[in-house]
Write a protein that binds this DNA or RNA. Structure first.
Length: 296
DNA sequence: AGTCGAGCCTGCTGGC
DNA sequence: TGCCAGCAGGCTCGAC
């Protein structure tokens, strides 16, 4: 599931059941996800208190007592499910898929039982996710975080910043915006949607954003609010849920209903006065959706 | 140095 | 119905 809005949604859903709570039991059911889990992972977590939750790019962060941070990345198919004590057997879904408690346990890789009674299960069929512990003092230099670009919702994302990054860049806009070293947290879906909003073709060179006559190009000026608005609206909608199994319990995201281009190839463009058709092409091995008429 | 493609791993969908 | 190819929201590594 995980682009920025989905991770942010998961973070907000976990806050009431994790922040201020201790890990009373940690079950690690396999040695690795995309990367090996840390040595003595369960042992090191058990008894620790979660001070607060955070997010950096697509990484979910649980700041622990003892100056360490639990880092969780959901990869492509990771999900965190919260089971609350009073709802015996009923689970609240935080992530891409709704969760059927009756099956699919094969991919429940890590289970956290919290002092408040909530049980949090990390499930990830493709195991592209990761989980690790990082000392707070090492955080800034850690290889997962050292090269990350600006947070798009933090005010650091400006037209001037994009213009500077795009200077002399040969890559197309799609690859430029997917690059976590430039803007942290964007993925395939929201790049497609943001480019649609500002009318830029994903195949155009990123240099179109660079400075012109001493100031950021008009395209960079338009792209920034397009990125912000699409992310903010997605967070408000609770993220996007692409594979909506039948047992949705109402907590699945809803932004997928608002996609203008993603997954809509062959459909009419929804922009007023545009009679274009949404097209799908493959860029760098990934699907790109755009309107062939109003994105130029 | 910058860019591109392959590969990681599993599950679902659609076509035959 | 069963099989198989193609596809999937991320990220890293090696080759050019």
């Amino acid at each position: 599931m995980p682009e920025l809005p989905e991770v942010e949604t998961v973070k907000r859903g976990l806050e009431p059941v994790m922040a201020g709570m201790r890990f009373v039991r940690v079950e690690q059911r396999r040695p690795d996800l995309r990367l090996p889990l840390p040595e003595r992972f369960a042992e090191r977590l058990t008894g620790r208190k979660v001070l607060s939750l955070g997010r950096r790019a697509k990484y979910l962060l649980a700041f622990l007592d003892g100056d360490e941070t639990l880092v969780i990345h959901l990869g492509m198919s990771g999900r965190l499910t919260v089971t609350l004590p009073q709802g015996a057997g009923r689970s609240r879904v935080l992530g891409e898929y709704t969760y059927d408690t009756g099956r699919n346990r094969a991919h429940d890789h890590v289970v956290f039982a919290m002092s408040g009674g909530a049980v949090i299960t990390y499930n990830d069929p493709r195991r592209f996710g990761l989980m690790t512990l990082v000392t707070n003092s090492e955080m800034a230099q850690h290889k997962l975080f050292a090269g990350l670009g600006v947070e798009p919702l933090d005010g650091e994302l400006t037209a001037a910043y994009l213009a500077a990054c795009a200077h002399n860049k040969a890559v197309d806009l799609k690859a430029f915006l997917m690059d976590q070293r430039i803007v942290a947290g964007l993925g395939n879906i929201y790049v497609c949607e943001a480019l649609f909003r500002c009318g830029l073709a994903p195949s155009r060179g990123a240099a179109v954003l660079a400075r012109r006559n001493g100031r950021p190009s008009v395209h960079a000026e338009r792209l920034v609010p397009a990125i912000r608005s699409v992310l903010e609206e997605a967070i408000t909608a609770g993220g996007s849920t692409l594979h909506d199994y039948t047992q949705a319990d109402g907590t699945a995201g809803a932004f997928q209903n608002s996609f203008a281009v993603y997954g809509r190839s062959g459909e009419r463009c929804t922009k007023p006065n545009c009679r274009g058709t949404i097209r799908r092409v493959v860029q760098a091995g990934r699907s790109t959706f755009f309107c062939g008429k109003c994105q130029r």
